[in-house]
């Protein structure tokens, strides 16, 4: 049942992606509406799958690598769907939906196993830690998509070389301010998530800092985003540099997320089940 839902969700995302790629070439409101609906239906089935899994294991499903990526992909799509309603920046879908499909497909590469219930994950701290960080990451992923759009559009305008994307991409200031918005919401969430993590670690392991590889990478990511936020607010960084830093920051997040979970050993390497 859960697997079926996941397949349906992936197919819906795929339809949405195809629709949005067509939308890139044909500016029809109908195409956008269909694609958005496909993403929405996909997100509903996806949520169903996560819910089933969570009920099955008796806690929020994020403990295996597959579950974590799946949850992240869902949050990413959901954030996009909500933001789309607010921002009305339709073309964003063309850049977001392929990412969603990639995340979904990467989950299927990982073994689907169910870990035994662990009391460690039942704490409210963990739920807070995971949900805020995932939401922050989803926002940073959106900022990443927007940054790519910004760089493409900036390249068009700077080099005075107008491809068809020039007509379709939104104004630079708009992209920059959306990136800014994602950052301004995402950064406090990330900070909160990390604090919750340290708080819980100090409860469980009597020390907030345990030289876990993921802890180190998370701090590095936090510093990158802190620099970006500071430069934006204090110095007025914007545009190309801010876009590159948003792309760099998200790359480090991916490294932290995938790499630390799957490859490195530590108490975040939850996939192996060893604590």
């Amino acid at each position: 049942m859960e697997a079926l839902f996941l397949v349906i969700a992936t197919l819906c995302y795929l339809c949405g992606t195809v629709g949005y790629l067509v939308y890139l070439y044909h500016d029809r409101e109908r195409i956008h509406w269909i694609s958005w609906s496909a993403m929405l239906i996909g997100a509903v089935f996806h949520a169903g799958a996560i819910l089933i899994r969570s009920v099955q294991i008796g806690q929020l499903a994020f403990t295996t690598g597959q579950e974590a990526i799946s949850l992240f992909a869902w949050m990413f799509v959901a954030t996009y769907l909500v933001l789309q309603l607010r921002l009305q920046l339709r073309i964003l879908g063309s850049f977001v939906s392929p990412l969603a499909v990639i995340f979904m497909l990467s989950t299927s590469l990982l073994p689907s196993q169910i870990l035994p219930k662990s009391e460690l994950f039942k704490s409210g701290w963990v739920i807070l830690h995971v949900s805020t960080l995932f939401l922050a990451n989803a926002l940073f992923a959106l900022a990443f998509s927007v940054a790519i759009m910004y760089l493409l559009q900036e390249r068009h305008i700077k080099r005075k070389n107008f491809g068809f994307l020039y007509m379709r991409l939104p104004p630079l200031e708009r992209l920059d301010s959306i990136g800014h918005l994602c950052l301004i919401i995402g950064f406090p969430l990330m900070t909160g998530g990390l604090v919750a993590g340290f708080a819980y670690a100090s409860i469980v392991w009597q020390s907030p800092w345990n030289w876990d590889p993921k802890e180190i990478l998370s701090i590095v990511t936090w510093i990158i985003y802190a620099v970006l936020v500071h430069e934006r607010l204090a110095v007025g960084w914007r545009g190309r540099r801010a876009a590159w830093l948003a792309i760099f920051g998200f790359s480090v997040i991916l490294l932290t997320f995938m790499g630390a979970n799957l490859l490195l050993k530590g108490h975040h390497s939850i996939y192996t089940g060893k604590m």
Partner: peptide, 8 residues
């Protein structure tokens, strides 16, 4: 038109 593409 260009100004619109830069500033919105």
């Amino acid at each position: 038109e260009l100004a619109r593409k830069i500033f919105g």
